[in-house]
């Protein structure tokens, strides 16, 4: 009986929450707030994708900005050169990312721990340099600019932020759903076993290498979906802005601050980090340069010192959950 009641209550909450999110643009005081929400969704989506390999697998990747950039560049180039709608080219972006993930992952997963992380940094740098080098193809350091040609769903360009709000909301929901499925799948189960003890998992017949590679590719494909939406929203991309290690670190940071290897941690991380950087910028940006970013760094340090397992663990008390979510890199 109580179970049934609980269920109803739970349903009520979910419905309430979804409705709130769906109605939010109507009560949003300005385009800016809606834009911040879009950023929260997009960064939450990226961190969710990162979480698949970086959290559940504890394979800390620092080249996720690269997959994101590949998505953005693929859709931009196809649109600018061949007028192919990003809604279609998103699939091309996924395929490109998959191929690149295989190229990166194939050698990198022969390494463990820090070595894997460093290899991903090297790959990210190589791709960034090549994007800069092949100027004729990628626009080089000049970047690519998307002229506004009027609102249209096919070209993902709108006059207000509201359509982006719904699109990014859907993408985030989709990626969280995929993660949820993944968590319960054989793949997710194997990956967790490998994270606990790779050698033990191998001795049980789990092909660690293959599992990690698959999860990595999944993660890369997931993040490449976000790339085109972000790129069309901002309407300008360049290799330094979106292929940089700083962005990879930001994505990972959001996931880790929220709580790795949890379904909702990345979203929590984005909800905290994105408004935080906006607020510090708004309050301190006009004072002497550096203050807002310094505070951002300080908060990062404090979280790591006091809540290294992520802020989502604050909610564990309510649920009496086992604290097994701590990120361990072996």
């Amino acid at each position: 009986m109580t179970d049934f009641k609980e269920l109803i209550k739970k349903q009520k909450y979910s419905v309430f929450i979804v409705i709130l999110f769906l109605l939010f643009p109507l009560i949003s005081p300005s385009d800016y707030i809606t834009h911040v929400m879009v950023l929260i969704f997009l960064f939450a989506a990226m961190a969710t994708a990162w979480n698949v390999i970086g959290g559940y697998g504890a394979q800390v990747s620092w080249c996720h900005a690269t997959f994101f950039a590949i998505g953005a560049y693929t859709s931009f180039l196809l649109f600018l050169r061949f007028n192919i709608s990003p809604i279609i080219s998103i699939f091309a972006a996924m395929i490109m990312s998959f191929i690149l993930a295989m190229i990166v992952g194939y050698p990198s997963f022969r390494l463990r721990g820090v070595y894997f992380s460093l290899a991903t940094i090297a790959f990210a740098e190589i791709v960034k340099t090549l994007l800069l080098y092949f100027t004729d193809f990628t626009g080089g350091a000049n970047g690519l600019m998307l002229p506004y040609k009027g609102a249209s769903l096919m070209s993902l360009q709108f006059k207000t932020e509201i359509p982006y709000y719904y699109i990014s909301f859907v993408v985030l929901a989709l990626l969280i759903f995929v993660t949820w499925k993944f968590e319960k799948s054989k793949l997710g189960y194997f990956l967790k076993a490998i994270k606990e003890d790779e050698d033990a998992a191998e001795s049980l017949g789990i092909k660690a290498y293959k599992v990690k590679l698959t999860a990595f590719a999944l993660s890369a494909v997931m993040i490449s979906i976000v790339g085109p939406i972000y790129a069309f929203n901002i309407s300008y991309i360049d290799p330094i802005g979106i292929g940089h290690l700083d962005l990879s670190i930001k994505i990972g940071t959001i996931a880790i601050i929220g709580g790795v290897a949890t379904l909702w941690g990345p979203l929590l991380g984005a909800i905290i980090i994105i408004p935080l950087s906006e607020i510090t910028n708004a309050l301190l940006g006009s004072t002497r340069g550096g203050a807002s970013t310094a505070i951002y760094g300080l908060i990062l340090i404090l979280v790591i010192i006091f809540k290294p397992e992520g802020l989502i663990s604050l909610f564990d008390k309510f649920k009496g959950r086992k604290k097994d979510k701590k990120l361990k890199v072996r």
């Binding site: 800390v60 820090v114 990972g252 940071t253 880790i256 990062l300 340090i301 010192i305 290294p308 990120l327």
Partner: peptide, 8 residues
């Protein structure tokens, strides 16, 4: 753990 160091 390593990740804590990295982020710190």
């Amino acid at each position: 753990g390593d990740t804590a160091y990295i982020l710190l």
